[in-house]
Simulated scan of single mutants.
Amino acid sequence: MSVRNRFGTVAAIALMTTAGAVLLSACGPDNSDPGSTAASSAPGSAAPGTAGPGGGSHSGSPAPGGKEVNGTSAANHLTISTGTKTVAMNGTAVDFGTVVRDLAWSPDGKKVVFVNGDGDLLTANPDGSGKAVLAKAPSGEAWSHPTWQHADKGPSGNAVPDETERYNNIVFASSKGGTLRLEQVPAKGGTVQELTPHNSEGGDAAAEPQPPQTGNTWANAGGKQAAIAYANTPANEVYIYDDYIRPATQDIGKGSQPALSPDGGHIAFVRSVDGHDHLFSRSTDYEQKTEKDLTPSATTDYTEPAWSPDGKTLAARTPDGVSTLPADGSAAPTQVSTIKGLPSYRP
C-alpha cells in the first residue's frame, strides 16, 4: 500500500480488511474517519468556527479583526470537505444540513456530488440546497469517492458522435464483503451498474492483458473525453480507463489516489518514498512515461491531490491541513489551510 495509515485507532478498529482501510482512510481527519460509524454519529456537524472532529475550526483560524481564514476563496476555487455538515469554500463554511463525505464538483461547477452519513450518493447545489438522493447504497455495501465523468459536446457535423449524455455519469468505489469495485450511475439518476475497465478484444488488441476487475477504487475523471483514472489496491497500481473511441486501459505504474488534470494531459498520484507519501506526476501520453517527484524534499505526507481548474496548481492534504504547490513542481508546497479534509476545486 503506497499511502501509509495515519488515521488513528477509531478507523483502525472499524476497518477489518486492507481493502476497506484504503477505501475509507482517505475520507476524514485523523482519529475521525467519517466513513466509520463513530465519526458519522459523533457531534461532527460543527457550526462555522466551532471545533469539529480532529480538533480545530472548520472555518479556519481567526485572523486579526476576527476575519475567518481557511485557505479557500472565490478566487482560488478551493473547497475542503471534512466529513461533517460543513464544507469550506469561498472563505467561509457552508452548512449542507447533512454529513458530506468525499465532495466532488460537476464539470460546470453548478452541482456537487457526495456520500452522506447514511452512505448514500447525493447531489446538491453549491450552497447545500436542492439535495437529492441519486442512489441508495444497499445494506452491507460502502460507497466512497464519487467523481463526475463527462465528455465535451462535439461541434455539429463532427465525425465523432455527441457523447455528452452517454458520459454524464457519477463513478464511485463500492466495498462489499471486503471486495472493491468501481460502479457508476447516470448523473440524472437511474440504475447503478458496475464499471468494468478493460481493453478492446480482437485485432491487435487481442493479446493485450485485461486489467483487474476487483480491488479498484479512488476513481477520478478528467479531460474532455470521459477518461477515468483509478487505483487498484492489491497491485498498488494506477490506471487510466478510456472507452471514448475503443476500450483501453493504461497502466501508469505504482501509486494510489490518482487525479487527472482538467485537460487530461497529466496525472498526479501518490507514492511512498523514504517513509513519506510524495506527490508524483507524469504525462498521460502512452509514449511519455517519465515521472516527476513533485515533493522530493517532503518531511510530511502529501495525499489526495486535486487539480485547479487552470491546471497550474495542485492541492494536497497533509496531517496539518491542506497545502498547494505548482503543478510543474517548480516550488515546494505551501500550507494554505489548517482544515483537515479532502481538497477539491470548483470549476
Rank of each mutant, 00 (worst) to 15 (best):
6 R>T: 13
14 A>T: 06
19 A>P: 00
22 V>T: 11
23 L>T: 08
25 S>E: 09
28 G>P: 02
28 G>E: 04
33 D>V: 10
36 S>I: 03
38 A>S: 14
39 A>G: 04
40 S>G: 04
47 A>G: 13
52 G>P: 01
56 G>R: 13
58 H>D: 15
59 S>L: 14
63 A>Q: 13
70 N>W: 11
70 N>I: 10
78 L>S: 07
88 A>I: 10
91 G>C: 05
92 T>F: 01
93 A>C: 05
94 V>Q: 14
94 V>W: 05
95 D>A: 02
97 G>I: 08
102 D>I: 00
108 D>N: 15
109 G>N: 06
112 V>I: 12
116 N>V: 02
119 G>P: 01
120 D>V: 00
123 T>C: 03
129 S>M: 07
133 V>P: 00
133 V>Q: 11
133 V>H: 00
136 K>L: 02
138 P>C: 14
141 E>T: 15
147 T>K: 09
152 D>M: 08
153 K>H: 12
154 G>F: 06
156 S>V: 13
160 V>L: 09
160 V>M: 08
168 N>A: 12
168 N>P: 03
176 K>L: 11
179 T>N: 13
179 T>W: 05
182 L>D: 03
189 G>T: 10
193 Q>Y: 08
195 L>N: 02
196 T>E: 15
215 G>W: 13
216 N>I: 08
217 T>M: 13
219 A>Y: 04
223 G>K: 09
229 A>H: 04
230 Y>T: 05
234 P>T: 01
234 P>D: 04
236 N>H: 01
238 V>T: 07
248 A>L: 14
252 I>K: 05
262 P>V: 07
267 I>Y: 01
274 D>Y: 06
283 S>A: 11
286 Y>S: 13
287 E>P: 00
292 K>C: 00
293 D>Y: 05
295 T>S: 02
301 D>T: 08
301 D>C: 05
301 D>H: 15
304 E>T: 13
310 D>S: 11
312 K>S: 15
312 K>E: 12
313 T>R: 03
314 L>C: 03
317 R>D: 00
320 D>A: 15
326 P>R: 04
328 D>V: 12
330 S>H: 03
332 A>T: 14
333 P>K: 09
334 T>H: 04
344 S>T: 12
347 P>C: 04
